[in-house]
Amino acid sequence: MYQRILIPVDDSETSRQALHQATRFCSDQHARTRLVHVIDLAQFTWGGAEFVDVGELQVNLRETGRKVLASAQELLRESRVEVEAALIEIWGGSISAAIIEDAGTWPADIIAMGSHGWTGLDHLLMGSVAEGVVRHAPVPVLIFPIKRKK
Rank of each mutant, 00 (worst) to 15 (best):
T64Y: 03
L35S: 09
R34W: 11
A42I: 02
Q58D: 08
A42T: 00
S12G: 05
E56F: 06
L57P: 00
H30G: 09
V68H: 02
N60Y: 02
I5E: 13
S96F: 04
D40V: 08
Q58G: 02
K67T: 08
A42K: 05
L61R: 04
Q3D: 14
A72F: 00
L87P: 04
V36P: 03
I110S: 07
R32Y: 08
A70S: 10
I99Q: 05
A42C: 00
I7G: 13
Q29F: 10
A22F: 10
T23V: 12
E13W: 01
R77V: 13
A85P: 04
I100W: 00
L6N: 10
A112V: 15
A85E: 13
I5S: 14
V81K: 07
W91S: 09
I100P: 01
I90W: 02
F25V: 15
W46E: 07
A70Q: 11
G104N: 13
N60W: 02
P107C: 07
A112Y: 08
S96C: 05
D53F: 06
I90R: 07
H30R: 14
R34I: 02
I95W: 01
A86Y: 01
R80S: 14
D28I: 13
A18I: 12
G48A: 09
I99E: 06
S94G: 03
F51Q: 10
V9P: 04
Q17F: 03
E78A: 13
D102H: 14
L19K: 10
Q73L: 03
G55P: 02
T14L: 11
W91M: 03
L19C: 09
V54Y: 04
E74H: 15
F51W: 11
F51G: 03
H30Y: 04
S12E: 06
N60M: 04
G92R: 06
L19F: 11
I88H: 02
F44G: 06
P107H: 11
R32C: 06
A70E: 12
Q3W: 03
E56P: 00
L57V: 04
G55K: 03
V36L: 12
D10L: 07
A85F: 02
A108S: 13
T105K: 14
